[in-house]
Amino acid sequence: MSLVSGPGRAQVAGGNLPNELQLAVEKHVKYIQSLDTRKDELEYWLTEHLRLNGVYWGLTALHLLGHPDALPRHETVEFVLSCQHDNGGFGPAPGHDPHMLYTVSAVQILVTVDALDELEKRGKTGREGVGRYIAQLQDRDDGSFAGDEWGETDTRFLFGALNALSLMRLLSYIDVTKAVAYVQACANFDGGYGVSPGAESHAGQIFVCVGALAIADRLDLVDKDRLGSWLSERQLNNGGLNGRPEKLEDVCYSWWVMSSLAMIGKLGWIDKDKLSKFILQCQDPELGGMADRPGDAVDVFHTVFGIAGLSLIGYPGLKPVDPIYCMPLEVVNRAVGR
């Protein structure tokens, strides 16, 4: 899946014509399908370190759009398996080092296309090997997770570990209690969470921290009124949401804020109509794809978060999304046995 941006641009002005306030479903499907035909562009190669994440983003968008077969399943599985290393971890593309973030995307893709058994049969390791790779990245003293053997920690990695392990039903491989305590240590005076203890609250980090607590079934630890207030304050008058005070609105932050609100049961605290209109203004209704905000070039990353956002606020015709995993709800229900 290419991470090349464009060719389209989100519409610049207005967004008031009836056809501009409709989600251009067919156009988005075509846009995502076209991404892999763009291998003659340098940007395709410069974004190779995000390839596997890109497949997850594109695939998830297609499932939510109701076109789960728009990417060939066999090739998708082959590509994912080709990114695996002997230690169980996945890189973003063949020849790249394994890392937590790519490993999570690999698991999410395989679960979405219901192909964990292919991993079992043909992977460098089966699912238990993947689970062990993730588990050894936990610091057993403080509960945090590194992204790779170099030891950098980030609450994104902790969430990724809980995310992938729960999808494979291997949460028992790690110390969940300590992971939860580490998330608690990242809570801030304003009700939000940061990347590490003491770091500034940030919508993306709040999403991963609250998501980790949701998977661990410890949302009781969240001060929901205070966090919900901070999150709902992210909505600007144009309807879009930002990630921190005094920053610009952005479709991806809109997703992280609203999914966090959904997890704590406060999604009603934002104006859904205004948000829906903002997201639709970020699409290119002609060539497909979505951008961070109106006027900018589209890319697959903002496309999936825009579509997932619309799904979460009940835009008609979309498959329901799971706010914790950002995957189709029915896929997650099947995987975790809800």
């Binding site: 610091d139 003293d141 403080d142 509960g143 945090s144 305590a181 580490y182 608690q184 240590a185 990242c186 809570a187 801030n188 005076f189 590490s196 203890p197 003491g198």
Partner: peptide, 11 residues
């Protein structure tokens, strides 16, 4: 605050 566990931070 303990830099790893964050113990001591917050209220």
């Amino acid at each position: 605050v303990d830099p790893r566990s964050g113990k001591g931070l917050d209220e």
